[in-house]
Design a protein around this nucleic acid. Structure first.
Lengths: 216, 216
DNA sequence: TGTACATCAGTGAACGCGCGTTCACTGATGTAC
DNA sequence: TGTACATCAGTGAACGCGCGTTCACTGATGTAC
């Protein structure tokens, strides 16, 4: 494809689009944010992109293909957000907090996209682009959360595996309860928090995970 | 309705069903388990119940009404499971563990139903039957998890609100990551756990939440 | 004890909708010679 | 430098599908008198 380097786009829309795949992903996100996951069909996305409704098929095959790639974009952005939050933070505990904060706030700021990233009915985690993006995002968490930082995420001790799982579940649970609006009950029982996000932020500040001795 | 006490059901199906609402809820769960959330339409449910596809409308109004009631049944069962797990357990820490274990295993055993209970697009949390069932389930957790057990769930101190939120998020995250099959990556990096559920059980045994001083 | 009638519960045909899929096509690009 | 041709990218009409909704209806039940 010699498209990215073509000097200029002709004034009247050319027959060949040039960068349809990226345009379709952007259109899909627009539809997702506007109409929610229910509105995410190939026809609706093509309509949003101003293109024939059979065009997406050339690039993505089917709806699952397109949405899986969109979910992959989501994981890349989540990873970037966590990396940016950690940047320059030396203290280990601070880094952990920065990651958790970034995870929850990413979900809060992109609720529809975050939801899509975990909707197995309409995306396919076996697609390489998606599984790799998801793995890359998780590999940002593992070294910071585990005990043996250098190990990376390809070989975890049992206790590190438990730490990583627990930490991920903790922030993931906060994120999903937050964006699914399930915290209003707690908020009503304990006024003083401005809104659900404030409650979640306070939780992240004050309640940490602690590996405890096996004898509980 | 003088249905529950009618002596016997005539051999040839009577025109009036008698207990259609309950039958429809059961049919909906059958469809949900068999075809997933995507298959949950009024027509499919009526078909499963062996009844005209407009009949559900008399009792539930629309799809959201029926599914919201099914989600309410789910919350009732979750509550029952947590109560049963706590039954006779005196130690506070053991009770906490029992609740968490019950929560995660309920999700594991009823993944489709659990998923429905948190799908805001197709259920309506404002319906009284659903919001009450959800609240009742949460009120099983709150007194055991907070510091001031007698307070119940209607008035929580700020620190209890944080504890409850954190504990709920923790088990909820474990449950969702588990049933969404997101733990395979961790499992691959750390063999030795039989399967994702074994990993989650180990996490529940060994990693607890700890409220820490505000200075992190 | 019987009769009339309103109300409730369930039926089945019909409609319109948006969807995914198929198909024959056309416009544009790249490559072989 | 030009020509022929294969391939790629996108079009638009058509089809079938399951869905929710509307409608006139029928069978059964409860209640007033």
């Amino acid at each position: 494809m010699a498209t990215a380097s073509t000097p200029a786009v002709p004034e009247s829309r050319p027959y060949h689009h040039g960068g349809l795949p990226l345009t379709l992903l952007a259109a899909a996100e627009t539809v997702l944010v506007r109409d929610g996951i229910a509105g995410l069909g190939l026809r609706a996305i093509a309509r949003e992109a101003g293109v024939s409704h059979t065009a997406p098929r050339h690039h993505f095959g089917d709806t699952t293909g397109l949405l899986s790639d969109l979910a992959a974009v989501g994981f890349q952005r989540l990873r970037d957000a966590m990396l940016a939050a950690m940047d320059g933070v030396a203290d280990r505990r601070e880094r952990r907090h920065a990651i958790a904060h970034a995870y929850v706030h990413f979900a809060h700021d992109n609720p529809a996209l975050f939801g899509l990233m975990f909707r197995n009915e309409i995306i396919d985690m076996r697609r390489p682009s998606l599984s790799q993006a998801a793995k890359a995002a998780m590999q940002v968490m593992a070294p910071t959360i585990g005990e043996a930082p250098s190990a990376g995420a390809d070989a975890l001790s049992a206790s590190d595996a438990m730490r990583v799982t627990a930490a991920w579940a903790y922030v993931h649970g906060l994120a999903t309860l937050l964006i699914d609006q399930r915290l209003h009950g707690v908020l009503k029982a304990s006024p003083g928090f401005r809104d659900p996000l404030a409650l979640v932020d306070a939780v992240l500040e004050n309640v940490a995970l602690a590996a405890e001795p096996a004898s509980r």
